[in-house]
Design a protein around this nucleic acid. Structure first.
Lengths: 191, 191
DNA sequence: ACGCCACTGTACACGCGTGTGCAATACTGG
DNA sequence: CCAGTATTGCACACGCGTGTACAGTGGCGT
């Protein structure tokens, strides 16, 4: 059934989130299904992981493009703050991507994440050009570092606490070069 | 011979730096030795990794305690800047620790790194108490995030370029709450 | 009732990395 | 030159995860 497939996907995200190198067996059991069944839906482990990643990229890209569209006129720091706020629930859910990017399928995963990386870099670049973000690092690196920290914080105490969302927003803004008072204000002005 | 042992250790650091999940075979070959020989020096893979980690912790701790001692009177941000500057060559060398911390021996490695983490948190705490570091995150988390970024940058373009040391120092200082002008100054005042 | 379909259960082949055993061989210091 | 030690070269056992094969079972709609 298609419901089973989605359940496997959801459970896999949880399981891999806790243990990135979990095997098909563990995932199957956690999904209340037999290993063989998982292979019926996903011919190989890579297929599973790829599907998961595509899902993540799709959702995150949607958020980022939406933010870019609605804040096209605002300062990049405000856009970033809104992005992180809306990204937060996803960041915790897909925190496993951090670990997945290195190891086994790193190559394949990295490729899927590529387009998102470019969007991110673009936003940071806009901020640097506008003078709201610092230029101690090229946009490509700085954006990676900043959202890497966001994911790292999301991985922390294991829950999507709103408190942490605030901290993640502030921290990432500061490392982007936004002064603390302004960063705090932006983080608190989020819905 | 003891020289062989050290060579294995050195090579293992390189190999694992490139590919954290490299097997004993790859390490042995890279060291110009047979797999069996590696096992003569390190009974298990964990022994090898643990030895490597202990070495890293020892060297890094030495740097941090030394900095703490010589800058006990200075502001924490200056101490941090000096710490990163002196840590830099090691950070690149031991960048593999980032990956090692998760996966297989994560537990064991984490334990070894514990004492160092505390030192780090202590320094950040001092900065927070002194008002030079921001308090958007508890010292324990903030310190982890900050030196995580340093290692991440060290892992980037694959060389211990001095330029990157500067960027790493600035970035970490800013996320600790140090305003950009001050962060830049501190980064440039390093020997 | 019947057939379709998802899922189960079990078994097997395969590759791969770990760790061990042991005889043979190179090397080094006295 | 000889002894002792480091290193080599296989061989093997083991565990583990992947991916496949195939017969069996349960539900569900028509």
């Amino acid at each position: 059934m298609n419901e089973t497939r989605n359940r496997i996907l959801d459970v896999a995200l949880d399981v891999l989130g806790e243990k990135p190198d979990a095997g098909m067996g563990e995932i199957a059991t956690a999904a209340g299904v037999v290993r063989r069944t998982v292979y019926d839906h996903f011919p190989s482990r890579l297929d599973l992981v790829r599907t998961l990643t595509e899902r993540a990229v799709t959702e995150m890209t949607a958020v980022l493009t939406d933010v870019n569209a609605s804040d096209a006129d605002a300062d990049a720091d405000a856009a970033w703050a809104e992005f992180i706020a809306r990204l937060w629930p996803l960041a915790h859910r897909y925190r496993v991507l951090l670990a997945l990017r290195r190891g086994e399928f790193g190559e394949a995963i990295h490729a899927l994440l590529g387009p998102l990386d470019e969007l991110l870099a673009g936003l940071v670049q806009r901020g640097q050009d506008g003078g709201v973000f610092a230029k101690h690092l090229p946009a490509a690196l700085l954006s990676q570092a900043a959202y890497g920290v966001v994911f790292a914080i999301a991985d922390h105490g294991r829950s999507g606490a709103t408190l942490d969302a605030r901290a993640a927003t502030i921290t990432s803004l500061m490392m982007l070069g936004v002064p603390e008072p302004r960063a705090t204000t932006l983080a608190d002005n989020q819905p």
